[in-house]
Structures are given as C-alpha cells and as structure tokens.
Design a protein around this nucleic acid. Structure first.
Length: 293
DNA sequence: GCGTCCAGGTCTACC
DNA sequence: GGTAGACCTGGACGC
C-alpha cells in the first residue's frame, strides 16, 4: 500500500527546472517522466524506499511505495528530498549577479540553477566517474548495471543505488565484466573500499572548511577524478567557481559564442570570469538554455 | 560485416 | 607545469 506525503517548497523553486537541470534524472535510481513531470527515486535508509515525486500546487507530492514507513524514516526521507532538490539553496546572489547580462535574465525568471543531486556525495562521485571519457549512453549503462546488480530491492521491485559496503564487496574484475566499467574498474573497487572503511568521507565535502582549491585537490586524490570531475562535484556540493569543462560544454560554447569554431579553455574561462564565484553555474545554465525553455 | 572514430577525461611517465 | 600516449566501452559512421 502506498502512502502520500507533502513537502512545502520555497517561493523561488521550480520543480521542472530542478529535475531537468542536468542528466542526473536519467541515471538510476532516478527516473524521469517528462510527460507528466514526475521524478522517481529509490532512497536508502534501513531498507530501500521507492518514491514518485511531483509538483502539487506549489508543494511537492511524494508517493511512497511502503505505507509502513516509520516516523524516523519519514523524517530522513523528507530531509533527503530537500537535499536532492536543493530546497535550502539560496540562489539570490546568483540571480543578482546575472542582472548585468540581459540575455541570461531567463535564468532568474524561470528559477533555474538548482542542480539535481543524489542523497549522498558518494553516489554523485561514482556517477561522475561514470561520465568520464565515454558516451552518455555508456554512462547510463554503467550506472544501471551498478543499481541492478548491487543495489538493494525496494518492496515494489525497484532498486536503490548500492552502498559503499555493497560496492566494496565485489572485485575490480566484477566491475569490468558485469558493470562494463572498463579501465575505471579498479578505481571503483578502490573508492568503495576506502569509503566503506572510513579512510575517506565524501559526505564531509558538503560542509568542508577547506578552500575550494584545497577541496578540489582532495577530490582529485580519488582515482578517476580529474579537473572536470572535481569541478562537477564541486557544483553538486554548492561551489560554482569551476566551469567543469567537458566535451559537451566546449562544443556548446563553440556553437553559441564562437561561430562554431574551437577555442582554448582559457578563452572560455575569460568569457565567464565576470560571474565570479557563480561562473560554473552561469556557464551550465547558458549552455542548457534550450533544454526546457 | 568490418574498421575507425570519439564521447559529459584521467593517469602515468617523461621532460 | 606541461605534454604524449595509453586506456575500456559501445554507438555512429563510412565502406
């Protein structure tokens, strides 16, 4: 039996802009229904909880697969939903920063800029490594394999993203043969072991006292995380000073601002320098303007 | 059917 | 600090 919960959202929040803010909504356990604008996700607590989230007159409607969910788990579930949809993020500084640029005024008007994220930094870290040096279809396949082969099943048959412990229980060869992760396989085995054993704690990156430069260095100490991956993770923990340039962003920039011609990363950097500590969010919104506008 | 290219890059060795 | 070459996979493309 399902159960329905509601969660109040801030005035300057757009459910559609947030769930479609980047590709994360296409990576399991996320599933997006962009005809009815519903987002599904399987959360992990003591046992997996399958949910369908939708916009309901300015509030969030959350359909939970397990009606027996207790008060404590319900509280954690709502806290996780606040986290993934960035309900507590303050983007007023970003919107103010954009006022000087008329062509970007749509960002504040449409309430864009909240980047969907996972309940844990660990999950975002693994998924980010899955985006490196491969097509988007392969990223989806690797993540789907992890969820289907290592994730715990909820009562409706859907599966959660695997825990670090579950990921540490399989070998690099498993990642190569079953997940199809290729050369990334030993990276995942090593990362899972380090997180499961407490040698590294990606969740601490959310509220770290380190400077962005120091935090980026710490992120890059994880095998498989380079400049792009670290800057993407920084965006997901709320720091936007890096552009996280990848082949997608570069090609979009060449098309939109450079007459289809390639240019250097330094030139792209210079183009967004005026947005200061918000430049990473500015370039992402600029390059994805056509996604749902 | 087969070969090549490349995609939401990173690592290592070397200079 | 900068750079060349290697690295898995699988879809797209040309032949």
């Amino acid at each position: 039996m399902p159960k329905t919960l509601f969660l109040e959202t801030p005035e300057n929040f757009s459910f559609r802009q947030t769930i479609y803010s980047h590709g994360w909504s296409e990576l399991l356990p996320f599933e997006i229904d962009d005809k009815n604008w519903r987002l599904s996700y399987v959360f992990t607590d003591k046992k997996p909880v399958s949910t369908v989230i939708s916009d309901s007159s300015g509030n969030l409607k959350i359909e939970v697969s397990d009606a027996k969910i207790n008060a404590k788990s319900e509280e954690k579930l709502l806290r996780d939903i606040r986290h993934i949809l960035r309900l507590d993020d303050d983007l007023s500084g970003f919107y103010k920063n954009l006022k000087s640029e008329k062509r970007l005024k749509w960002i504040a008007e449409k309430l864009a800029g909240r980047l969907l994220r996972s309940p844990t930094v660990f999950e975002d870290l693994v998924k980010t490594i899955c985006t490196t040096n491969c097509s988007w279809s392969l990223t989806k396949k690797m993540v789907a394999n992890m969820v289907e082969k290592l994730g715990e099943e909820a009562n409706d048959g859907k599966r959660a993203f695997p825990t670090a412990e579950a990921m540490a229980n399989v070998s690099a060869e498993f990642y190569r043969a079953e997940i199809r992760a290729g050369y990334r396989s030993p990276y995942f085995a090593e990362l899972a072991e380090k997180v499961a054993s407490g040698k590294i704690n990606p969740e601490s990156w959310l509220n770290s006292d380190l400077t962005t430069k120091e935090l980026k260095k710490e992120m890059k100490s994880v095998k498989g995380v380079g400049d792009y991956a670290a800057e993407n993770l920084l965006k997901l923990v709320g720091r936007y000073d890096g552009l996280a340039l990848d082949s997608f962003l570069r090609s979009q920039f060449y098309k939109k601002h450079n007459g289809e011609k390639a240019c250097t990363d330094r030139e792209i950097d210079a183009f967004y320098e005026k947005f200061g500590s918000w430049r990473g969010l500015a370039i992402w919104c600029d390059m994805t303007e056509r996604w749902i506008n």
